[in-house]
């Protein structure tokens, strides 16, 4: 139909029907339509500009309180700050990034976790920000995992050795940040003599690198332990974690960025990424197995965010019956 109207427009320059007036038809109406078009087009134009200059650093705090019957008493009220998808190679305003870090620091959570994609492609991207992100500290430690962008798969390397060296150096960067990188492994967090298991897997994503090994990561974990999993891609939860014989109470993910574009209001929640990912942002619960998908701290490709703002998540674990706190 668009082609037809274009064709009509071209033909109209050369051919006029019998009795047609010499002047263009309804010139005033055409001008009015153009004026309306300018006004309508100004909306996405100004919106995108806002997203590029302000929105991408407009950090939002998302708080979630989750209730579990089998949470060890000692962890009642335990708080976790999560950030994800830093994508440091995209930053262009260090002061603005620091504002986000300050907001995360101000939460003073018990535990800090980072759920992957520290860089876009290469380890050196994080170098200018080491002193910034290393400020994120928590009494029970800082833990991280790798995301699909951390393996250097999306750029050209002169050799496989160069690519492998990049990954080795990236793991060193996590150490410099003070983050304990969990590569298909688990650790125990102890509080007042009680424990919970924190498990971290390498990337496993539908359509992306799938080297994360959940079974290996669970090796040595007590089956009755309270378990929190860090897994970058939410499709891992969709396809593996929620059906796994081991009950993993809470999975923390990122990856989708919420497409950095969308609408989230009380009555409407839409992003184009929902056509690619079933679980693309926020909290998902299936048979008391929770997934939280962080919208991301950074941005990638589109140097902006509109409607889906950069996120810092604070999760509070509470002991109790989650059926009595459905909206918590």
């Amino acid at each position: 139909m668009i082609s037809a109207v274009f064709f009509y427009g071209v033909v109209n320059h050369f051919v006029k029907p019998k009795g047609a007036p010499a002047k263009p038809f309804f010139p005033a109406r055409r001008k009015f339509i153009s004026e309306v078009a300018i006004l309508v087009a100004a909306v996405p134009f100004s919106g995108f500009l806002y997203g590029m200059f302000k929105g991408k650093y407009d950090y939002k705090l998302h708080k979630q309180t989750l209730y579990f019957d089998d949470l060890p008493e000692a962890f009642d009220g335990f708080t976790i700050t999560q950030i994800s998808d830093i994508h440091s190679g995209s930053f262009d305003n260090t002061a603005a990034v620091q504002r986000g870090i300050d907001l995360a620091k101000a939460q003073k959570s018990d535990l800090f976790v980072f759920t992957g994609d520290l860089v876009n492609n290469a380890e050196w991207e994080i170098k200018p920000y080491i002193n910034h992100f290393s400020q994120l500290r928590a009494p029970y430690g800082q833990f991280s995992i790798l995301g699909n962008h951390d393996y250097g798969d999306y750029i050209h390397w002169d050799s496989e050795t160069e690519k492998a060296t990049n990954l080795v150096k990236l793991k060193e960067r996590h150490k410099e940040l003070g983050y304990r990188l969990l590569l298909d492994e688990n650790i125990e967090i102890e509080k007042n003599g009680q424990k919970l298991s924190l498990i971290g897997v390498q990337n496993w994503g539908r359509g992306f690198i799938q080297i994360g090994d959940l079974d290996k990561a669970l090796n040595g974990v007590d089956k009755d332990a309270f378990k929190i999993l860090l897994s970058h891609d939410p499709t891992h939860w969709e396809e593996k974690v929620r059906y796994h014989p081991t009950n993993i109470h809470l999975t923390l993910a990122g990856h989708t960025h919420g497409a950095q574009f969308g609408v989230e209001t009380a009555g409407l929640r839409w992003s184009p990424v929902q056509y690619r990912y079933l679980d693309w942002a926020g909290l998902i619960n299936e048979k008391n197995r929770y997934l939280y998908v962080n919208r991301g701290f950074g941005f990638l490709a589109f140097s902006g965010r509109l409607g889906i703002w950069p996120e810092i998540t604070v999760i509070t674990l509470k002991k109790g019956d989650n059926q009595n706190h459905p909206k918590a």
Binding site: M52, G89, D92, N121, I155, S303, G304
Partner: peptide, 16 residues
Amino acid sequence: FQTAKGMTPLHEWILS
């Protein structure tokens, strides 16, 4: 884009 540096902030600005 597919150089050893990948997509830089300048590339991202142009795309945006």
